[in-house]
């Protein structure tokens, strides 16, 4: 019954389905792949073959099966999205909580720093960091988390500010609870809904940014099956190898859309403030 109600929201349903497929594909990439060894290996005899029964989505410039690489790329995508977003959340949420709960110059300073980060396009900062550290997956993750944490800090800061004078917080204070306890046990559960929504949508943004870094040659080095880089590689072989860029592009589109839909749907369920009643539609 509860599930039924949850899925009355179409966005939530479609988003959940897409993301579930992504996870399943990532987990079962091995058995699902037709050429599991093409993640690292290739077959020079079959370079740039169009999609067909043997190579479902065609082959790339090295003669590797694009379909199989795409499946393993899902793992990479999830890995980057989850760790980078997760790290950003882990940095951003405590900063936002502390700055929001306490007054004083330290809080002010923390928020100013995050404002400065937000004042610069994320991808530009990420390029600088990834270039400094050198192209590999860890550094992409690091670059993205360093540039994305302020979004959560800002959000949690604003939410904490609006919560900290609520009755339940006052009550906990009167009971002698420590600030840490109040923040973690009382405020955090109350604002978890908006954090979850922001994080879900943030996953999509992170995937797009990671793909852009991959496309610019700052992502995981070859032969990692990174979707953004697969698209970059394809450019040399256009317009003949049209399939080369098509498949990874659609994969990115679907996954990002999945996260966005899921986030929108979760917002309707979790964020009571914007849940709409039967308004009047003149």
């Amino acid at each position: 019954m509860r599930m039924r109600r949850l899925f009355r929201d179409r966005a939530l349903l479609i988003g959940t389905v897409i993301i579930s497929i992504l996870v399943l594909v990532a987990v079962f990439a091995g058995p699902l792949a037709t050429f599991p060894d093409h993640v690292t290996g290739f077959d020079p005899n079959h370079r740039l073959k169009a999609p067909g029964w043997q190579f479902l989505l065609g082959t790339d410039r090295m003669g590797a099966d694009i379909y199989s690489r795409l499946l393993f790329g899902a793992r990479l995508t999830i890995l980057i999205a989850v760790t980078a977003t997760g790290t950003a959340v882990i940095i951003g949420v405590p900063i936002g909580l502390i700055a929001g709960y306490f007054d004083g110059w330290a809080s002010e300073a923390l928020m100013r720093v995050s404002d400065i980060f937000l004042a610069v396009p994320q991808i530009v900062l990420a390029i600088a960091i990834a270039q400094t550290l050198g192209p590999n997956i860890q550094n992409v993750i690091l670059a993205l988390s360093v540039t994305y944490w302020p979004f959560w800090a800002r959000l949690v800061y604003a939410e904490t500010r609006s919560q900290r004078n609520e009755v339940y917080v006052e009550a906990a204070k009167a009971m002698g609870a420590s600030p840490l306890r109040i923040m973690v046990m009382h405020i955090l559960p109350n604002i978890a809904g908006s954090i979850i929504v922001r994080t879900t949508i943030g996953m999509g943004a992170t995937i797009l940014a990671a793909a852009s870094l991959g496309f610019l040659g700052l992502g995981a080095p070859p032969p990692a099956p990174e979707w953004g880089r697969m698209i970059a590689e394809s450019r040399e072989f256009l317009p003949q190898a049209w399939w080369y860029a098509t498949a990874p592009g659609i994969a990115i589109l679907m996954v990002v859309m999945g996260f966005n839909l899921l986030g929108d749907g979760l917002r309707d369920v979790l964020d009571p403030r914007i849940r709409r009643g039967g308004g009047d539609g003149r």
Binding site: L238, P239, W242, N260
Partner: peptide, 23 residues
């Protein structure tokens, strides 16, 4: 709108090139 927001811009660029310039 959803699709427009979820698309990798560089991929869209390549598709447009493929269609309008190359084809």
């Amino acid at each position: 709108t959803m699709a427009g927001l979820a698309m990798a811009a560089f991929w869209l660029a390549i598709l447009l090139q493929l269609f309008f310039s190359m084809t």
